[in-house]
Amino acid sequence: MVLILADQTDGQFKKTAFEALSYGAKVAEQLGTTAEAVVLGTVSADLSALGKYGIKKVHHAANESLNVLDAQLYTRVIADAVKSTEAKVLVLPHNNTGRAIAGRLSARLKAAMVPAAVSLPDTTNGFVVKKVVFSGKAFANVSLNTDIKIISLNMNAYKAVAGEGMAEVVQLNVNVDAPKVKVTATEKVKGEIPLTEATRVVSGGRGLKGPENWGIVEDLAHALDAALACSRPVADAGWRPHHEHVGQTGIAIAPNLYVAAGISGAIQHLAGVNRSKVIVVINKDAEAPFFKAADYGVVGDVFEVLPKFTEEVKKLKGA
């Protein structure tokens, strides 16, 4: 059996959960077995609806203690679920939750784990999964050499596919202590599409000259239904919030469309965005290194090009 952590945020499931479920269901199909999900904490979403992603059963540990990401508690509960269900493969999303617990689960279960996975397992000779290495500049084929295998699936690496189906929901009875981690404040990123979830991203660099000019970037992002990002110097200068910084030392993203405006395309910047499916670069310097990594390039002034680009997108949408 393949067990998948359907990670929830504030009682709801997001794209990463659906990707992990669809991926896990496919792995199960490949192995000729079934897929089931585990859900931790209280949820408002309809759990049986997770069946749409190809899973048969949802194990729900509804304890309130699990509404806080206490890596120790999460690990204990999920490891016990793996054991009690006799799961052979565990799939997690490689998001902030996965990063907190995938390594712990590996150590606890003494199970081989592949982080930042981007492919289905190749089982022709062992169990081999491709992962991102060198910040997206290369891939490694990792063999998982234990009986139980853990896959932490990179975001945007597998497309969620919703079909028909309802999952059976069963309570997972667990005894958990109060979390050792006490949450004293929370700040949610509101109103915007979180960068790592976004299918389209519009990003600005130093070529924008100052924070007061971000309106034209925001307008394009709005028209495209895209999230906002920026280069590191832009975040360092305080023009944009730190959580928008993409690259080697910022966030790594893999959207379908990445639009880079006034960004030179330094190798450390590319490291965070080179897994984007389609890259559009707008730069006034025809020699900017970013053009080498681009699919579509525009040599021009961002202050003229961006508003025109936005206008044409609106025309398309209006049509």
Partner: peptide
């Protein structure tokens, strides 16, 4: 628990 069988570079644009 794991081993790296091989590396590969992304397909060229």
């Amino acid at each position: 628990l794991t081993g790296i069988n091989s590396f590969e570079l992304p397909p060229a644009k």
